[in-house]
């Protein structure tokens, strides 16, 4: 971590840092399948309330490198069956100082943002991340996010699972899934 804090110190106190070149590290290369135009679907599952219907959305978006390839930006619009839409921008990068990928999400309709580290699970060939959340009544929730690609890189899938404080430790029901295909 010291290297990161050195950068922090350098940036704030010592002055600017200029990138040597557009980044094309092997680490970022593993995210290259993200780049392109996508269409797909999402399903919001209701594992704790069987009386609620699953909600589905269609999805359209595109992903491209920005900031000299340091980030891949994905712009996504999701549409419910009733026509209502939500829009997301996500930014994925490799943080060389922390030696992990990071995922940043901002979206219309909510003021906050989500930032969490991602790790590559080589055994299962997918990216995995955890972040904290809370229920509407303030109970802490842990969220596990998984995503990966088909072997040809033309399909992208993501799943989310969560665990609410107080539940049995191994209870991590799936709450969301997304699949999309490159156009």
């Amino acid at each position: 971590m010291k290297s990161l804090w050195s950068i922090v110190f350098f940036y704030f106190v010592c002055g600017p840092v200029y990138a040597e070149s557009p980044i094309s590290t092997p680490s970022m290369a593993s995210l290259e399948p993200l780049i392109g135009d996508w269409r797909g679907e999402t399903r919001h599952l209701r594992p704790r309330n069987s009386e609620l219907d699953e909600r589905t959305e269609t999805l359209e978006g595109n992903c491209r490198p920005i900031l000299d390839g340091y980030y891949i930006e994905c712009i996504t619009e999701l549409t419910r069956a009733d026509g209502r839409t939500r829009a997301l921008h996500s930014y994925t990068n490799y943080n060389a100082a922390n030696e992990n990928f990071e995922f940043l999400l901002i979206f219309r309709g909510w003021s906050g943002k989500i930032i969490y580290p991602l790790e590559w699970d080589d055994e299962n060939k997918m990216f995995v991340g955890f972040h904290d959340d809370e229920t509407r009544d303030g109970t802490p929730v842990e969220v596990r996010v998984e995503f990966g690609f088909s072997k040809d890189g033309r399909e992208h899938w993501a799943r989310e699972f969560n665990h609410i404080e107080g539940e049995p430790g191994d209870y991590w029901p799936q709450t969301f899934e997304m699949s999309r295909r490159k156009q």
Partner: peptide, 14 residues
Amino acid sequence: VSTLTCLAAMPGIA
């Protein structure tokens, strides 16, 4: 920062 879920359970319809 993390206070809500990801692509998923957003109340974020505009």
